[in-house]
Amino acid sequence: MPTKKSMQVYVVRTWFLLNVFVALYPPLYWAASEHRELILGLPATFVYFTAVSLSITLSILYAFWQEAANGELTS
């Protein structure tokens, strides 16, 4: 049975991979570009870039937080 620590490592790796996928997978940004309706009052391509960037930012903050909490960062 996976430990809590190994689960957290998998979460970080999966999140990082997901970031790479959504930042690079062309059909996603093609779809955003063709989506004419506003999302929360904002253009879809703007929402796409902001969401991708926010996800990358949060993933690193989470990775650092969980490594620090597990005592893996000693200096």
């Binding site: 970031n19 930042a23 870039f49 960037s53 990358i56 930012t57 993933s59």
Partner: peptide, 15 residues
């Protein structure tokens, strides 16, 4: 909006 590619890659590079 195409200029926003710099935002994506600048953050990916920190990753």
């Amino acid at each position: 909006i195409i200029s926003f590619y710099v935002l994506s890659y600048s953050l990916l590079t920190v990753m």
